[in-house]
Design a protein around this nucleic acid. Structure first.
Lengths: 195, 195, 195, 195
DNA sequence: AATGAATGAGGATTCATTCAT
DNA sequence: GATGAATGAATCCTCATTCAT
């Protein structure tokens, strides 16, 4: 009997290598060979397991989104009030794995790839929909008249700060980002209460 | 008899072709030949004038930023109060050339390229600095204690909304984007007044 | 307890899979994996039994020739006069397995392979020699002066009609092919009698 | 001004190199690099002019068919009676360029390729139709009742002898091939006269 | 006996870039 | 000033083949 069960190991290794490689180089202009080498195998094997470069990328993107989703889900468990839920969502975006430079870079590149690849666009839409849906649900409860607007504003702010972080090293860190957004949210909530 | 003064004409044509091509294809994966063809010349000539593909891209990026800067400047001329100035800056981002699909796509791709190219990163920093500086100056006058925070928040929101627009066709248009941001700003200004 | 006597079973399966695969795809551009898959085993096993792709092909070719030879032999049993023997040989070419599309395609490809592979060339020469020898022997008895010429002509006609059949679906079938050749033969025999 | 007019030269060189290379190697398994090298240029240039390997092959096939057609046409000019026309067609198949080993090998491979490539199949059909049509027209005049049968028989014999020639060096040459076919034809004509 | 795992050696194709005219 | 011509260096992908189990 041959060596067995390598497939999941190899696939995982390739996915992680893809993210690292994109993160380190700062481009989607990464070759299958580079990825495979980093994952400790030949490029032929990478093709054997994924079929094509595009599918390797898709898997990597799915992986990033899965991690992100898990992080959000985890954060939501701990929160009870709507405001806490909103904060949890925001913190999930700026904490842990998702905020590591490699992930940010990979993320940004996926953003761009979404302009070409249908699969990438689909995955991105899922992420956006989930984010908006979560935020909107919470805002509906505590700032009903501005729920749409605040949802849009917060989502945009998250993306904007996330991206800024990728570009300038002098950008304030995670805490500051959360602070800016929470300030905005609290202004919105105050308005709702006073209305 | 050699044609005189072809250089600026050719350079301009190439720069505009670059933006159009990136916009239409939705990638930086654009070949020099494609650009040159769209600009009505041979790829050899493109190299003759710019030396390398990277320099063509840099010039295109400079062009986009110049247009953007002009638009902001123009908008500022008409505004007198700090709030008007802030609104002018925001509207400049979501109006005219800068908000045309091609420019958005080109812009996003430049964003990504900034992770590799020093020149691109430099140009992007200039844009960001100018934007922040303008905003900050205005906020300092009408919401001094929150100036930093509001600047960061507004800048992020602009970028976030801008990018979202590039990805989903169902994203609300220019007016809605301005509305979301202005709502945020007015919340901030109200807070400043009440403090 | 190892399975005993698997070797002949596997070899046969591979040989038949080879013919089917070539026939279906219409090329010798068939991979070992495709063949092995169709034969219900791994490509590694195929190599284990045959050593190399070329040897798989050679075995397949031998198989086709063996079948063909058997068919001719069978047909000859029933014939007594020289003319009957000639007709039997011809009918054997256009009947049964040998005239099934897969076999025709495989055959044609072997023909081509004979230009590269010594083994293939050798096998093809055997086929040709046997065919000619059979025909010549019969013609010698009933059209002695034209035996060489008729042998050559009939052999060529067989090959030509066989190949034509592979290429155009509107080509008349087996019966018509035999009819054309027999007409030629009868003309030749008539000439011999009248001389 | 650049060097001009290389395109036709390069295209011709590539087409001829393709035929030679296929002829020499005896396969369609010829790489673009091999062809390009033989034609004295880089493989990149070959792609520049033809776009793809398949198009190089198609051009080569067209070339072979064109030469063949020219040869037939030339031969027909000299012939007045139907029998002369038939002989001219046959001789054209076994004379000159068309009967050179390289051309035969290339031809055979195209035959096989016709099983996959639509373009190849189309070209081959054209050849076959032309050949049959020419023969049939002539037979109609001098052996009307057997025109169909003789056309089929002669066409098959031509192909068969042609191919045989490619495979065995001891195969009799051009003259003998023509002799075999003409014998068949004369038998048919005699039958027609006596009927 | 049998196979999943693994890879080296290509092969088609693309492209930025250079050059001769 | 301008361009067709030309290529070297990649890049993705395939496949026969080998190996460890």
């Amino acid at each position: 009997m041959p060596k067995l069960g390598m497939e999941p190991i190899r696939r995982t290794a390739l996915v992680e290598a893809t993210i690292s490689e994109i993160g380190q180089r700062g481009t989607l202009d990464v070759t299958v060979s580079q990825i495979a080498k980093r994952a400790g195998m030949s490029s032929a094997l990478a093709h054997h397991y994924f079929g094509s470069k595009e599918q390797i990328f898709a898997a990597a993107m799915r992986h990033v989104l899965t991690l992100y989703g898990a992080q959000v889900k985890g954060a939501l468990v701990m929160s009870s009030t709507p405001r806490e839920r909103i904060e949890a969502i925001i913190r999930a975006n700026f904490a842990g794995m998702s905020f590591r430079p490699e992930h940010i870079a990979a993320w940004m590149n996926f953003y761009v790839q979404a302009q070409k690849s249908d699969e990438a666009a689909r995955l991105l839409r899922i992420y956006q929909h989930r984010l908006r849906s979560n935020l909107h649900h919470a805002f509906k409860q505590i700032a009903p008249r501005r729920a749409d607007m605040m949802t849009r504003g917060v989502a945009a702010m998250i993306d904007g700060l996330y991206i800024r972080h990728a570009l300038s090293s002098d950008e304030p860190g995670s805490e500051a980002a959360v602070g800016v957004i929470m300030h905005y949210i609290d202004l919105g909530l105050a308005e709702a209460r006073s209305a």
